[in-house]
Structures are given as C-alpha cells and as structure tokens.
C-alpha cells in the first residue's frame, strides 16, 4: 500500500487529478447544503453575467436560474452516472470475460461473438436508440451507458484470465479439489484486478462524457439538472451569453481530465513493470 502511494505520487499529473476530483466530489456532496433550493428555480433576471452580483457568483441562465447551483447539482449527477454505470458495466463485462477466458473453446467463441457484436455496432447511436424509445430517466441513462461500455471490460478480463489459467497456482488449486467458481473468484480474478481498476477509472471518465453528450441532445432525465443539459439549453444563446455554454463545458473537461490523469497514475502504481518498459 505504501509502495502503491509512493509510485502514484511520483506521477505529478495523477496528484493534480486527485485534487481536482476531490474538489468535484466535495462540490457534489455539499450541493444540497450550499444550494438547498432547486437548481430549476428562477432566482434573478435572466442573463445576469458572472461576477456582477453577490450570492450569484456565476450569474443566471436564459431562464434566470442560478448557474453556480446548476453546476454544483450537475457535479452530483455526473459523478453518480459515471460511477454507477461503470459498476454495472463491470458487473456485465467481468463475468462474460471470466467465463470466456476460463472455459475457452465453444463458450469462449459464443461469448466473444456476442461481445464483438456490441463492439461493432455504433455505440453512441445504440445509446440514442435505447433512450429515444424508452422514456429517458436517470435509471435508463445509466442502463444505456452500461450496455454500450461493457465490451472492453469483457475483452480485457478474458485476456487476463486466459493467461492466468495455465499458471501453476491455478493448477495447484485445481488439484486441491476446488470448484471452478472458487478458482475463478478466489484465485484468478484477484490477480487480474490491477488492469481492471485502471480501465474502470477511465470508464468513469468516458461515462461522464457520454452522459453529457446524451443530455446535450435532450436525452437526459428531464427532471435532473446536468452539465450536458445546461450546454444544450444555452446553445441557442451562444452569441449573446457564451459563458453559459463555456462554464459547464469546463466543468466536464476538468472532471474527465482529472479521472484520466488518475487512471494513468493508477497504471503507473499498479503495473510498475509496464511503466518502466514504456518510459
């Protein structure tokens, strides 16, 4: 653990990323406390520019809503969607990949065909189709994002399991009479964990980008304030109030950047040999 932290800290970008993410998480948690009013509520005249009035640091949008409150509540939604959809995607991808890699042969063929199908079709279009047909709600947004983001997990886990299953400690476990489930869960998966963790951190970033794109197109939950929605709503007034599109975009950029940086840091810290090789 100490070594892990030492190697993680060595990557300066990752530390910066960690600070940004900590700030975003704090904002998301404190949003209901700092901005107890609904972010949809009109608080002032529309198009109030930033830094012109106390208490409304970032001004108001086209409908007089507090931009700062929108950003804070949006942080919560982005992180929630990013985290939960990644967990769901892992819950689909890890078993598929583990079964394919462990049993090989026909099981592998069938599962990988299935994975390949989802990887070939245009994933963003698939997410749009799913959300357009079913009413967009937060749950469905999360489901749609998970459905399009699990294939890389399955491929990664399959590769790891394929290389681990012929190792001696797995043979030893088989000889000691353990069942397949026990071997996969107790012996193989724990060893495949580092690359999965790295991938997961990058997936959270991608999920946040995907969520913002979907709500930008008007496919987000209509009751929830999100960064993508804010940009989509401010799009038509970009000539007169560009900051309304600019600010939420910066929020997305910083959060996604932070997660990507952390992912690289985790990669350095968890796969030290790999890093040295690629330096």
């Amino acid at each position: 653990m100490k070594d892990f932290w030492k190697r993680f800290r060595y990557n300066r970008g990752a530390v910066i990323g960690l600070f940004i993410l900590a700030f975003v998480i704090a904002t998301a948690i404190l949003a209901p406390v700092l901005f107890p009013q609904s972010p949809w509520k009109m608080v002032q005249r529309p198009f109030l520019p930033p830094f012109t009035q106390d208490g409304l640091m970032l001004g108001t949008d086209a409908l007089g809503r507090d931009v700062m409150a929108g950003l804070a509540h949006g942080a919560y939604v982005s992180l929630l969607v990013g985290l939960v959809s990644t967990i769901v995607a892992l819950a689909i991808g890890v078993p598929v990949g583990a079964l394919a890699g462990y049993f090989a042969g026909r099981t592998d063929d069938a599962l990988m065909r299935f994975t390949e199908f989802f990887q070939t079709i245009p994933s963003f279009a698939l997410a749009i189709v799913l959300l357009a047909i079913f009413q967009p709600s937060l749950t469905f947004v999360i489901i749609a994002i998970s459905i399009v983001s699990w294939p890389p997990v399955a491929r990664l886990v399959r590769g790891e399991v394929l290389s681990l299953r012929t190792r001696e400690f797995v043979e030893a476990a088989t000889l000691s009479g353990l069942g397949n489930t026990q071997i996969i869960l107790r012996h193989i998966l724990p060893n495949a964990l580092p690359p999965i963790i790295v991938l997961a951190s990058l997936m959270v970033a991608q999920a946040i980008l995907l969520e913002s794109s979907l709500s930008f197109l008007g496919l987000g939950d209509p009751n929830i304030m999100s960064w993508g929605y804010m940009i989509g709503a401010a799009r038509t007034v970009i000539r007169t109030a560009w900051w309304l599109s600019f600010l939420p975009g910066m929020a997305i950029l910083l959060t996604v950047l932070a997660l990507n940086l952390i992912g690289e840091g985790l990669n350095d810290a968890l796969n030290p040999r790999l890093t040295r090789k690629s330096e």
Binding site: A205, L209, S213, I231, R235, R239, S245, G249, I252
Partner: peptide
C-alpha cells in the same frame, strides 16, 4: 492530446463556432 481527449466533442464544436465564426 490529453486535453483534447478529455473535452466533450459538442462543446469543442460550440466553442469553435463561437471563436472562429462569431
């Protein structure tokens, strides 16, 4: 590259319109 990779595409598009067109 790290920055471009983290930027939402629709937002870059909007900002590009703003700067280069408007």
């Amino acid at each position: 590259a790290l920055l471009f990779y983290a930027t939402p595409l629709f937002w870059v598009a909007l900002m590009a319109t703003l700067v280069f067109s408007v």
